[in-house]
């Protein structure tokens, strides 16, 4: 019916609205596009107007970033840590969520309240205590692992990622499990399926939408984190985000813009492609309660 109103009396506000929306969209898009373009510029092109297009494809920046700045190496670390983290969190959260959703047991109320409270504990508060705890474990085990085991271990980082997203993941999955009618499980039980089979073969496939949402948000959280990675991997094996942070620091000293911009593009592009592919799902998931900051 808005069409009738707008037809009835032309609104000068509409043009203004358009201008405002376009201006805001441009304010978001231009800096990103500018970095993408600037990553192709040669060293001398960074001086002067920032609005000039690159003269050619100066791909040396990418070679520098990938090889000299080790971004290629860090990329692999990030992939490993993220994939492992996702495997861990799904492996422990799916059974927990299923049991919380479907079984009566003593202490269930307590488990639910604890996980709910966990939603409010942000990892930024506890990253230093976690670090010191791991340092303490390393010290206690110095005879077994003289080089240390827990600090600078990508798998431990994945485990910490998984642990810190358990509350969110269990909360979302349990809510979805509860929404599935119990008849399917009863039918499967009559057919002789074990509890474990019911969970993995019957319920898990039905919970795929919730599982996808959880994977999407956890992927972004793990891939984009840098505080935990910076603290728990202080050595050579960095993640992509920490590598980029180092490039930023180095650029401040040496004014080597090309390498920094290329490094940024290496970090941005995979996420942008991912986002373009799953855009609808991500925004729907957010609107349906799978929201995470």
């Amino acid at each position: 019916m808005t069409t009738i109103t707008s037809a009835a009396r032309p609104r000068p506000g509409r043009a203004l609205t358009y201008v405002l929306v376009i201006a805001i969209a441009l304010a978001i898009a231009v800096p990103v596009a500018w970095v993408l373009l600037a990553s192709l510029k040669g060293k001398s092109e960074f001086y002067g107007s920032p609005w000039t297009l690159p003269e050619g494809l100066h791909l040396q920046n990418y070679v520098d970033a990938f090889v000299t700045a080790r971004m290629g190496h860090y990329f692999l670390t990030s992939v490993l840590v993220t994939v492992l983290g996702l495997v861990f969190v799904v492996a422990v959260s799916v059974p927990a969520a299923y049991v919380v959703a479907r079984y009566e047991f003593r202490g269930r109320g307590l488990v639910e309240v604890a996980l709910l409270a966990g939603l409010f504990v942000n990892v930024n508060y506890i990253v230093v205590p976690i670090f010191l705890m791991l340092v303490g474990w390393d010290r206690a085990l110095v005879d077994v692992f003289p080089g240390g085991f827990f600090i600078d271990n990508p798998a431990v980082l994945s485990l910490v990622y998984a642990a810190t997203s358990i509350p969110f993941t269990v909360y979302l999955l349990a809510a979805y499990f509860r929404s599935i009618p119990v008849d399917f499980e009863e039918a499967a039980a009559l057919d002789g399926a074990s509890r474990f089979q019911i969970m993995t073969r019957v319920m898990l496939p039905m919970a795929r939408p919730a599982l996808t949402t959880v994977l999407l948000f956890n992927f972004l959280a793990y891939w984009n984190d840098y505080i935990i990675a910076l603290t728990l991997l202080p050595g050579e094996g960095k993640t992509l985000q920490v590598g980029l942070l180092n490039l930023m620091t180095a650029q401040k000293a040496a004014a080597d813009y090309g390498r920094l911009y290329a490094g940024m593009v290496i970090v941005i592009v995979p996420v942008l492609i991912f986002y373009a592919l799953i855009q609808r799902r991500l925004i729907e998931g957010m609107a349906s309660g799978g929201v995470k900051g």
Binding site: P31, W34, W223, N224, Q241, M248, I268, V271, Y275, Q279
Partner: peptide, 19 residues
Amino acid sequence: VLYVPSVLSVVVIAAIFSA
């Protein structure tokens, strides 16, 4: 377009704004 910054990492955003 408006949702793009929500998928970017904070380091990337910091780098963009430093630039």
